[in-house]
Amino acid sequence: GVLMLLTAAVILGGIRRIAEVASALVPLMALSYLLAAGTILYLHCRELTDALHLILVSTFDPKAAAGGVMGGIVWTAIRFGVARGIFSNEAGLGSAPIAHAAARTNDPVRQGLVAMLGTFIDTLVICTLTALVILVSGLWDDGANGAVLSTAAFDAGLPGYGAYVVSLGLAVFAFTTILGWSYYGERCAEFLFGVRVIWPYRLLWIGAVPLGALGKLNLIWLVADVMNAMMALPNLIALLFLSPVVFRLSRASD
């Protein structure tokens, strides 16, 4: 109920209020997370070399590759890897351009570079730091996964504080994701049905928040994976046709 009320208070104010809330929460969340991860890695700098060595050895270990092929789990690993990667940065879905299209700029190439910076920070910086924290904590093979594993690793690195950093970060991330995707859907609904659909759409979105919070996690993941694939396929096809435009604008900006 609280999450629904907070969502309503923001999205009923439109894109300006969404931008104000997100611009205040997201940098604070990211900086807190990066500071906590950096502190843990500094305190465990001796284990950092072993963690990097483990990553490299596991990557090029022929036994692991052969076991994956023989066990028939390669396709499963690829599917989950791609699905979770999309959740990390939304690359290829065509969703982030909706927000970047609302930016006040006359230079599409520069705005595209800003969009790519978000993918770099999400995937290469934050995800890499998270992986290293999990490895130096020594909990990477204890059977846990997902948010439970990340929370345990941060709490082991910063006892009494790490778990709160991850929990608050996840809460802020989930809240701002709800806000961002509400705007994406609103723009698409307006394009298809006109401005008259905006307020009914916002009310339906607010009403759906408790359903997502109380639904079964496996079902939600399954629905999200299917819907993401349905967005990615037409968007990737469109990118192929638009690639000449991208190349032309990129060359013109050099």
Rank of each mutant, 00 (worst) to 15 (best):
S32R: 11
R248P: 07
R46P: 00
A65T: 14
T119C: 15
F241W: 10
W221V: 10
I18E: 07
A66M: 10
A22Y: 11
T177E: 03
Q111V: 06
L222S: 12
V195N: 13
P27H: 06
Y184H: 07
L43E: 15
L56C: 07
R202K: 12
P62M: 08
D107N: 08
L204K: 02
F120T: 03
D61W: 07
P234I: 03
I178C: 02
A65E: 11
L25E: 05
L93C: 01
G38T: 14
G112S: 10
V148R: 06
L240W: 15
I73V: 10
F80T: 02
V57I: 08
C45D: 14
N106E: 14
S250W: 04
G92L: 02
L149T: 04
E90P: 05
G68D: 09
G14A: 04
I40P: 13
S32A: 13
L12G: 04
L28P: 07
C188V: 06
R46N: 02
F191V: 04
L34M: 14
A24Q: 06
L25V: 15
V209G: 07
D107I: 01
L236Y: 03
P234R: 12
L28Q: 09
N106F: 01
G92A: 04
C188P: 00
C188H: 00
V26N: 02
F173K: 01
L54T: 14
P210Q: 12
A9S: 10
A238T: 07
P159M: 07
A22I: 14
L3P: 05
A66F: 10
R16F: 08
R16P: 00
R16C: 00
L217Q: 03
G194R: 04
P159V: 13
L117E: 11
Q111R: 03
T59L: 15
L35R: 08
I55V: 14
V26I: 03
G68C: 08
L6Q: 05
I15A: 06
L192I: 08
G118T: 06
P159Y: 12
V133H: 00
V57S: 13
L6W: 04
I198P: 02
A171M: 15
A153L: 11
P62K: 04
E47A: 15
T176Y: 10
L124C: 14
L179A: 13
R84M: 04
G67C: 11
S23R: 12
